[in-house]
Simulated scan of single mutants.
Amino acid sequence: MTDQPRSLASALFPIGLLLIAMASIQSGASLAKSMFPLVGAQGTTTLRLLFASVIMVILLKPWRATLTAKSLRTVLIYGIALGGMNFLFYMSLRSVPLGIAVALEFTGPLAVAIYSSRKAVDFLWIALAVAGLVLLIPMGDASGGVDLQGAAYALGAGACWALYILFGQKAGADNGIQTAALGVLIAALFIAPIGIVHAGSALLSPALIPVALGVAILSTALPYSLEMVALTRLPARTFGTLMSIEPAFGALSGLLFLHEVLSLSQWLAIACIITASIGATLTMRSGTPPAVAAD
């Protein structure tokens, strides 16, 4: 009798960690948006990545990694993809509600899962994803859609997320968890010039330090650590399926912290993309890297 509750607890533990990680990263995005009036999305991305890189370097000691010319190229692409993903996602948040931005960004890992599967049923997931996009993105004179430029930024973040997954798997195979620290460091160096040009000396404001540190912890250090623990205790399909509900966490976080109220059609669009992501995850080939939260 004692083994059953223990086994149930061991099964629920990684699921709980994953739910906390998703709540953390979306709360971090809400907090990051509060910095936009001061340093813009560009400066916010720079501060988040700089603080996150310091935390990750201290924790993971990336100088122990062994890099060849080939692995260095892979890590560089991985880091640039990570920086581009963060930058474009924050740029989209200037004009797009958080839940919608996350849903649009999720087309990246969804495309990876569908490409890796190539089954007939994938046409259903593609149709659901397209239906979600049609409901979200304004077509012609349709009203009620999201800002087109903001949607383009979010879709661009999704494309970077796809590259992040593909090259992250290759880079991780060479140097394991130390790859994460290298990737965040490269991302910070890649994005910092953009933030410095845009925000200038405002980035040095002492008042921003606690907020930027909070964003770095909530959006990077804490969720990444929790996901790594969960990933070692859950099958890849289960992990990917649970991660697919992240757009719902984004929408709820936007509602609670940013007072972003979505319409019924927008909730329906998010549901379509979540369903497509879950379906594609369940039918993907074994060995396909699962999507990890990296907004």
Rank of each mutant, 00 (worst) to 15 (best):
I15A: 12
D141N: 07
A192D: 06
G16D: 09
F89A: 05
A127K: 05
I186R: 10
P14F: 10
L189I: 10
N175K: 06
A151M: 09
M228A: 06
P37C: 01
I273P: 02
A173T: 11
G132S: 12
A187L: 12
L124G: 10
S286W: 06
M35F: 10
A291M: 08
A101Y: 13
G40W: 15
L231I: 08
K61L: 05
S27G: 15
I77Y: 06
L268H: 04
S10T: 14
A280Y: 07
S30W: 13
S225E: 05
G83N: 10
L50P: 07
A180H: 00
L72P: 00
G150K: 01
P210E: 11
S34N: 11
F190W: 15
W267H: 02
A101E: 14
L148W: 07
A212F: 13
A11W: 10
A113V: 07
A21R: 01
A23L: 14
A113Q: 14
T46W: 09
G140F: 02
A180I: 13
T179L: 05
R237E: 09
L8Q: 05
F239I: 07
G214M: 07
I209M: 13
S71M: 13
F51I: 06
Y90S: 05
T179W: 00
C160T: 02
A202R: 14
G254I: 01
V211D: 11
S244T: 00
A199S: 15
M228Y: 01
G200K: 13
Q149E: 03
T46Y: 06
G83M: 02
W267P: 04
V229G: 04
G144C: 02
D147H: 03
S95T: 15
S143N: 00
L136D: 03
T281P: 01
A151L: 07
P289R: 03
L255E: 00
S286K: 15
L185T: 15
G108C: 12
V292Y: 03
M243V: 05
G144S: 01
G176F: 07
Q266S: 00
L38N: 09
L252R: 02
L163T: 05
L12V: 06
L166W: 05
L231R: 14
G108W: 14
K61I: 08
W161K: 04
L163C: 04
F51L: 14
A162W: 05
A151T: 04
T232R: 15
G40S: 14
T68N: 13
L182P: 08
M91C: 08
S205Y: 03
I274F: 00
A269F: 03
L60S: 09
M1S: 05
I126C: 13
A21G: 04
P138I: 04
